[in-house]
Design a protein around this nucleic acid. Structure first.
Lengths: 197, 197
DNA sequence: AGTTTTTTATACTGATCGGTATCAAAAGGA
DNA sequence: TCCTTTTGATACCGATCAGTATAAAAAACT
């Protein structure tokens, strides 16, 4: 048996994640990754595969590590609490790190070259999955009388995701925490719940 | 006097604009630009300068050609009409072209490498300018009694821009026109105007 | 028609891209 | 202690990046 790996894969993945978070998939070079992780190319390739695989693993890690608020939010008892938790969770995520603001899923590849198109589509797929989960939850809320009968769960889900993604753009652009929190407060104040609690 | 230019600079700029719109600044290569414009590199460089200058000229053209709804919106008589016009104008712009959906200002450079950072900052600057203009307009609306006294123009302006930018992300990801229009309808239905008209 | 000026296409530049071959150093197990 | 195995850094690969030198082709003026 030979020597053991000197670096901790978890730690390296986390460093890579932060670079992708800040610069996006295409904006991040292998030189960036080796510099920030402290691991030379061959080490990265032997453990994670290629750049695309590394990004996808970082994305998985991102969801597992930072997106846990989503499931917790969906378990809240009322639609109001669900949306409040989602927006608060998005806010925390998008503003927690001063160098990597916004959302990895949005920063990663919004518009890109043809070669990065698979990455972009994967990110779209994941965002849609979140929206669908929220839509299902709001559907339930309406059945439970927790949303006005007139409310359309699909529209409200898209609205919440739109606000969350807009906040991601704003956060990346440097919006202050105070301003973003005020936006959330406004959204919640106008939430069409049967009872705001 | 020598020969005249064979291509129409306006036409070329428009073609370049559409490529940048679809793929973003960094996702667009000079090969993309020469292919889509039909003009070889030396022609592009002699007329527009380098890639960065070409993008900025395309951005100016974009504002002049497609963002005129913004000024018109600010001239609407009520805050409700202003916001309705901005969201409707954003919607039209973001969904007008099937190959270049979303907003050039957002697609252009949300997250990018260090070398494209000047472009990103310029886009942030322009978005902020729009937000400031809306903020000023809402401030006036409040003074005119067209917004509730409790409303904070700065917060509402950021809210509208957040929705608009979130819609840009959604449009780029392929959201249908119907869904986006429903989101706008919801935003307008919850607008805190003193009188909704 | 002849000359001059400008545009155009081809081909090239150095730098950087993602990805890999090579080989020495290091760390197991026997 | 010696041998095997794997890691690690260096250096390299072809491809592509933005940008430019060169020279032929085309058009306008005299």
């Amino acid at each position: 048996m030979g020597r053991h790996r000197e670096f901790d894969a978890e730690q390296v993945l986390d460093a890579a994640l932060n670079v992708f978070w800040k610069k996006g998939y295409e904006g991040t070079s292998l030189d960036d990754l080796t510099r920030e992780t402290g691991v030379a190319r061959p080490g990265l390739y032997s453990v994670f595969g290629n750049k695309e695989a590394l990004f996808l693993k970082a994305l998985d890690s991102y969801e597992a590590k930072y997106m846990t608020f989503m499931q917790a939010a969906l378990n809240e008892p009322t639609s109001y609490a669900v949306v409040a938790a989602i927006l608060k969770g998005s806010f925390d995520l998008q503003t927690r790190n001063d160098v990597a603001r916004g959302c990895l899923g949005v920063n990663g590849a919004l518009a890109c070259s043809d070669s990065a198109e698979p990455i972009r589509l994967e990110l779209v797929r994941r965002r849609n999955a979140s929206e669908q989960a929220l839509c299902d939850r709001l559907e339930r809320a309406r059945q439970e009388g927790d949303l006005s009968e007139a409310a359309d769960p699909a529209v409200l889900a898209k609205y919440v995701m739109t606000v969350s993604q807009g906040m991601a753009v704003q956060a990346k652009a440097g919006a202050t925490k105070e301003h973003l929190e005020a936006v959330i407060k406004h959204v919640l104040a106008t939430w069409p719940a049967a009872r705001n609690k």
